[in-house]
Lab assay of single mutants.
Amino acid sequence: ETIMEVNLLKGPKGLGFSIAGGIGNQHIPGDNSIYITKIIEGGAAQKDGRLQIGDRLLAVNNTNLQDVRHEEAVASLKNTSDMVYLKVAKP
């Protein structure tokens, strides 16, 4: 597993990826991690090219996303300014 830091500039459609996982909404049984499950065509993440489906999202800005509820992860992604710092684990 490789840890990678990505600074992503939000586009008109936001960050351009979808997530799944978290406490109460496990993407993988027994694993509370938050995973990237979709990269949106023409979105910021696709244009940047570094994020991939299956990457594990560890942090957004200063918010640690390990062992959080799905709703908390979504809220932390929404409550960001235009430049967003992401910390991901690549499988």
Score class of each variant (00 low, 15 high):
G14Q: 03
H70W: 06
R50Q: 15
L57G: 00
K87F: 03
I40G: 10
Y35Q: 03
G54N: 10
V74P: 02
N64T: 10
Q66N: 05
V88G: 01
S33I: 02
L8D: 00
Y85L: 12
K78C: 07
E1W: 02
T63Q: 09
N32Q: 11
K78L: 11
A73L: 03
N61E: 15
A59S: 13
D67A: 07
Q52D: 10
V6M: 08
G49V: 02
N25V: 09
Q26E: 13
G14P: 05
N32K: 05
N7R: 11
K78Q: 12
Q52G: 12
L58F: 12
I3Q: 04
H70E: 14
L51D: 00
K90V: 04
K90E: 07
S18D: 15
A44W: 04
G54A: 06
V88T: 11
P29A: 12
A73E: 00
I53K: 11
Q46T: 07
G42V: 02
F17E: 00
I23G: 06
G22Y: 02
H27E: 11
I36Q: 01
Y85G: 11
I23D: 08
L86N: 00
K78P: 02
T63L: 12
I53S: 11
M4Q: 07
I3S: 05
I40L: 14
I23W: 12
P29F: 14
I36M: 02
Q46A: 13
P12Y: 04
K87P: 01
K13Y: 05
M83F: 07
K13V: 10
I40C: 10
R69H: 07
I36D: 01
Q52E: 10
K90P: 03
G42H: 10
M4R: 05
V84D: 02
I19E: 00
L9V: 13
G21N: 03
M4V: 06
L9G: 09
G21Q: 04
Q26M: 09
E1Y: 15
G43A: 10
D48Q: 04
R69A: 10
N61C: 14
V60A: 07
P12G: 10
Y85D: 12
E72F: 09
E1G: 05
F17W: 01
L15M: 13
K47M: 07
P12D: 14
L8E: 01
N25P: 06
L58E: 12
D31A: 04
N61S: 07
N61I: 01
Y85M: 13
I28R: 13
V74L: 12
S81Q: 15
Q66I: 07
V88M: 08
N62W: 04
F17G: 00
L51C: 06
E71G: 09
I19D: 00
A44L: 11
D55P: 00
E71C: 10
V68D: 02
L77W: 02
V74A: 13
G43S: 14
N62T: 12
V74I: 08
N25S: 13
L86M: 14
G43M: 11
I53T: 07
P91N: 15
V84M: 06
G14W: 02
Q52N: 13
L65P: 00
R50V: 13
I34M: 12
K78N: 15
H70T: 07
T80M: 14
V6I: 14
K87D: 03
I53Y: 09
I19W: 13
L9A: 14
E41R: 13
V88W: 04
V74D: 12
S81D: 14
M83G: 09
N32H: 10
M83A: 11
G11R: 05
G43T: 13
G22E: 02
G30F: 04
V68Q: 07
S76E: 15
G42L: 08
G30D: 06
M4Y: 06
I28K: 15
V74G: 06
D48N: 05
N7I: 05
L9N: 09
I23E: 05
I53H: 06
P29Q: 15
I23K: 15
N7T: 07
I39M: 14
R69T: 07
K10M: 07
A89Q: 03
K87R: 06
N64Q: 08
Q46G: 15
L65Y: 05
E5S: 09
K13M: 07
I53W: 06
L51Q: 00
K10A: 03
N62R: 10
I3D: 08
S81L: 14
A20I: 09
Q46I: 04
D67S: 15
P91A: 06
R56D: 00
G54S: 05
I23Q: 04
P29S: 14
D67V: 09
V88P: 00
A73W: 02
N62F: 04
G14F: 02
R69C: 11
R50N: 09
N62L: 09
K10H: 03
S33Y: 07
E5V: 12
G22R: 02
G49D: 11
I40F: 12
G49R: 05
E1D: 15
P29R: 12
I3P: 04
I39W: 03
L15C: 03
G11W: 06
I19N: 00
E71Y: 05
D55Q: 15
G42W: 07
G42T: 07
S18E: 08
N32F: 04
K38V: 09
Q66H: 04
H70V: 06
V68R: 10
G49W: 02
Y35V: 10
R50P: 01
L51K: 00
I40P: 08
G16H: 00
N25L: 11
D67F: 10
G21M: 02
N61F: 02
G14C: 08
V74Y: 10
G11K: 08
V60I: 13
D31T: 06
L8G: 01
I34K: 02
N25I: 07
H27P: 04
I28T: 14
A45S: 07
I19C: 12
K47P: 03
E1H: 09
F17S: 00
A45C: 15
A73K: 00
F17A: 01
G14R: 03
N79E: 11
L58Y: 10
M83H: 15
S81V: 07
V6S: 02
T37H: 09
K87Y: 04
I40W: 07
L86I: 04
P12M: 06
H27I: 03
V88Y: 03
E71W: 10
V84T: 12
R69G: 13
A75Q: 11
A45D: 00
L8F: 14
R50S: 12
G22F: 02
Q52W: 03
G16P: 01
S81H: 04
S33R: 08
G54P: 00
T80Y: 03
I36Y: 00
A75C: 10
G30P: 05
A20W: 11
G16K: 01
E72M: 07
L86Y: 00
K78M: 07
I3R: 03
T37G: 05
K38Y: 06
V74F: 15
D55W: 14
R50D: 09
G24A: 13
Q52L: 08
V60S: 03
S18F: 06
I28D: 10
L77Q: 01
K10P: 06
N79V: 14
N61H: 04
Q66A: 05
H70M: 10
T37V: 12
L51T: 02
K38N: 13
A75E: 15
G24R: 12
G54W: 04
Q52P: 00
T80A: 15
I19P: 01
L86F: 07
Y35P: 00
L9H: 11
L51W: 00
L9I: 10
L65R: 00
E71D: 15
D82Q: 09
V74M: 04
L58H: 04
M83T: 14
L65W: 03
D67G: 13
Q46V: 13
P12N: 10
D48Y: 02
G24T: 12
N61A: 05
S81A: 14
T80S: 13
T37L: 05
I39G: 00
A45Q: 00
D48R: 01
D82L: 10
I34C: 07
D48E: 15
V6T: 05
E5A: 07
